[in-house]
């Protein structure tokens, strides 16, 4: 009897050891703050590294979807592998490096992999995710491909965890399906804040956090990308400040980055 209790205790201790070791290897991933207070709060500090994140977008909104994926890849940093289904590449246009550079992503850090079918895309993505020197892998897929089942997404999630590389799976015209993703987002382009002369402004999106693992989901934000400071801010708040500024009868002082905040404040007080 005593012997049995002893062996049970030994077993428990061993199990505990295995568990802590497991947690230690997994817990190193960390997370990337996106710069938007409410979103970071909802995500518990930011987007988790080394996990699979799903981005769903309307089929006719390829620009917004790729833009948001590129922005997340820029925030995560490191080299990026962009795996695309060839038919999608042909239909929605190829990535244009000057456009990537314009939102702050260095095109030299990008490896494009064009593949003829979805299963090849998923296989290459798993290879990429295991390569721990990469920062992120963007997987662009059309809609709800049959090859993408729960097993496939679990394989991606495991590979992402093993390599510590973040997987961003982009599905144009896709519906939410059961998957092993850490978070799932619905992305759509939002009207931008127009610049002088009614010209289109900075990239803006409507984001909806459809679900996330281990945390309460839900939340809808309208965000704008600031490529200089490399962060997302709230588009509506920015709009409100602009509207305020327009309502007050005062001289407009342009806030160049070089000018100190104190001086800007002073000018407002004088006005």
């Amino acid at each position: 009897m005593n012997n049995m209790i002893d062996s049970l205790r030994l077993l428990r201790r061993r199990l505990a050891l295995v568990e802590t070791r497991d947690r230690a290897t997994r817990g190193t991933a960390g997370s990337v703050p996106v710069g938007h207070g409410a979103i970071d709060h909802a995500l518990g500090g930011g987007l988790m590294r080394g996990r699979l994140h799903e981005l769903l977008a309307p089929a006719d909104d390829a620009g917004a979807a790729s833009g948001f994926a590129a922005v997340l890849a820029r925030l995560i940093g490191g080299d990026i592998m962009w795996v695309v289904d060839e038919a999608l590449w042909r239909r929605e246009g190829r990535l244009h490096p000057a456009g990537l550079a314009a939102i702050g992503l260095d095109p030299a850090r990008l490896i494009i992999v064009l593949l003829p079918d979805v299963s090849a895309v998923l296989r290459a993505a798993v290879d990429g995710l295991r390569c721990s020197t990469l920062g992120s892998v963007v997987i662009a897929l059309p809609g709800d491909p049959r090859a993408l089942d729960l097993t496939a997404s679990r394989r991606l999630a495991l590979a992402a965890e093993a390599g510590g590389v973040t997987a961003l799976m982009l599905r144009l015209g896709g519906k939410p399906l059961p998957s092993a993703a850490q978070s799932r987002w619905q992305v759509a382009s939002a009207p931008s804040l127009p610049l002088a002369g009614a010209s289109p402004g900075h990239p803006a999106w409507t984001l909806e956090l459809l679900r996330q693992r281990g945390r309460p989901d839900g939340g809808r934000w309208c965000v704008e990308w600031d490529s200089e400071q490399a962060r997302l801010h709230d588009r509506d708040r920015a709009a409100a400040t602009i509207a305020d500024g327009a309502a007050l009868p005062r001289t407009v002082v342009s806030l160049s980055p070089g000018r100190s905040a104190a001086r800007a404040g002073a000018s407002r007080r004088i006005a």
Binding site: A62, G63, S66, G67, A70, E92, G93, R94, L95, H96, P97, A98, G99, L100, A101, A102, I103, G104, D106, P107, A108, R109, I111, S192, L195, S199, P200, G201, H202, P203, S227, E228, P257
Partner: peptide, 28 residues
């Protein structure tokens, strides 16, 4: 092809403060 591509060259930096002037996807 990445296997033959020369060493990465610097890309022209975007204008500060400007929204993207070149598209992300391009049709060809």
């Amino acid at each position: 092809p990445a296997i033959e591509a020369p060493a990465p060259a610097p890309w022209p930096a975007p204008e500060p403060g400007e929204p993207p002037l070149r598209p992300l996807h391009m049709f060809d």
